Amino acid sequence: MVGPKRTPLYEEHLAGKAKLIDFGGWEMPVQYAGVITEHHAVRKQAGLFDTSHMGEIDVRGKDALAYVQMLITNDASVLKDGKILYSPMCYPSGGIVDDLLVYRYDLEHFFIVVNASNTDKDYDWMLEQVQDFEVSVDNVSDKYVQLALQGPLAETILQRISNVDLSKIIYYTFTHGEIDGVPCLISRTGYTGEDGFEIYCSPEFGRQIWRKILEIGAKDGVQPIGLGARDTLRFEARLPLYGNELGKEITPLEAGIGFFVKFDKDDFVGKAALQTQKEQGVPRKLVGLEMIGRGIARSHYPLQKNGEEIGFITSGSFSPTLNKNIALGLIRADLAVQGEVLDVLIREKPVQAKIIPSLFYKRG
C-alpha cells in the first residue's frame, strides 16, 4: 500500500512538532502552536505556509493564449506579461473542474497553478482539451517547492532577504528574483485575505528558505502555519475551497464567483450552459450565515426552512477574528434574503442560523 505523499519540507514540519494529517493524499501539517494562535498571527503579523502540494502546469506554444481562453471562464486576453488571473475552469455542464491561477510569461507561455487534490484530474482534463491547438501542456509540479508568506508584515520580513524591490510587485503580478540567494518566482498572491507573497523555487532549496524566513521574521512574530488556520483564514475572507463551495455539481454563478465568467469573450468550455443558467436565473445561491443557536455548522450539514430541506452548508467554523460561529451555505435562490432565519441540522437537531453578508472579513 502506497502511503501519502510528502513535500520537501516534511522534515521541517517534524522538527516544528506539527500535527500531521492526510490531506488529499498528502501528509501535511494541520497545526503547530494551534489553529487560533496561528490564525491571529497571520491577521496581525505574518505566517509561513508550506503550499508545495499545489500543482503547477506549464502551457507553451503558438496557440497558448487561444488554448487557455478555451479552457477557462475568465478572459486571459487582458493579461500582460508578468500578470496573474484567477479563474474557474468548467465542464461543458457549467460545473467546476477547479479554480486556478494563470500566470502569463508571454503570449506563448502560461504557468497555471491548480489545487493539490485536483492536480492529476486537472492535468488529464487539460490534455483532453488540447485537440487541434498547437501547444504543449506539462505537469511540472515536481519541479517546485511553493511557500506562502502572508500577513501585514510579510513584505517587511521578506524584503530583508530578497534582491528585488517587493513594493514594486503589485497585487496579482509576479517577477523573478532571489530569496536568500536562491532564484525564485515571487508573486503577490495568497489565500488568506491578507497581503503576502507566494514563492516558487527548486525543491532542493525549500528547506533553506523556510528556515531563513522563520529566522529573520522571528522578532516580528512570524510563525509556521498549518492547514487548520489556512482554512479559517480563507473562509473568513470568503475565498472558495474546491469540494466545499466549488465542485462538479456547482457552477461559478451559484458559487457567487460569476464575476470571473466573461460571456463577452469567444467560446469557452461551459459557456452555453452558463449562459442558459444566467438567462433563466440561478437555482441556488451561496449565502453567509451566523449561528443563532449553539453549535458549529460543518460542511455538508443540511439546511432547512420550516422542516423542508433547502440546501447545505459548504463551510463552517468558529471565526477567530469575529469571535462567533459562522458558515457559508448553498441554498434555494428564492430564500437567499438577508436576515432570513434557517435551520442547520447538527446531529439531526435543528439549530437556528441567520443569513448575513458573506464577506465576513476584509483587511483594512
Rank of each mutant, 00 (worst) to 15 (best):
V222D: 03
V222C: 09
V222L: 07
Q223C: 05
Q223W: 00
Q223S: 11
Q223R: 15
P224C: 04
P224I: 01
P224D: 01
P224Q: 04
I225A: 06
I225L: 03
L227K: 09
L227M: 14
G228Y: 08
G228P: 07
A229I: 01
A229H: 06
A229R: 04
R230A: 15
R230Q: 13
R230G: 13
R230S: 15
R230I: 04
D231H: 12
D231Y: 08
T232Y: 10
T232D: 07
T232C: 02
L233V: 05
L233M: 11
R234W: 11
R234K: 11
R234Q: 13
R234L: 06
R234C: 10
R234T: 12
F235H: 07
F235V: 03
F235L: 12
F235Y: 07
F235S: 07
F235G: 01
E236M: 03
E236K: 00
E236R: 01
E236Q: 10
A237D: 07
A237S: 13
A237M: 01
A237E: 10
A237V: 03
A237G: 06
A237H: 02
A237F: 01
R238G: 05
R238T: 05
L239S: 10
P240V: 08
P240A: 13
Y242Q: 04
Y242D: 06
Y242I: 09
Y242H: 14
Y242N: 10
Y242V: 08
G243T: 10
G243E: 12
G243M: 06
G243S: 11
N244E: 15
N244W: 08
N244S: 15
E245S: 11
E245D: 15
E245N: 13
E245C: 05
L246C: 13
L246H: 02
L246M: 15
G247P: 04
G247C: 07
G247I: 02
K248P: 04
K248H: 14
K248W: 04
E249W: 00
I250Q: 05
T251D: 12
T251M: 05
P252F: 09
P252W: 04
L253C: 12
L253T: 11
E254A: 11
E254L: 05
A255K: 06
A255I: 05
A255C: 11
A255Q: 08
A255L: 08
G256D: 13
G256K: 10
G256F: 09
G256H: 13
G256E: 13
G256L: 04
I257L: 02
G258Q: 06
F259E: 14
V261W: 01
V261E: 07
V261K: 03
K262P: 00
K262D: 15
K262F: 03
F263P: 02
D264A: 03
D264P: 00
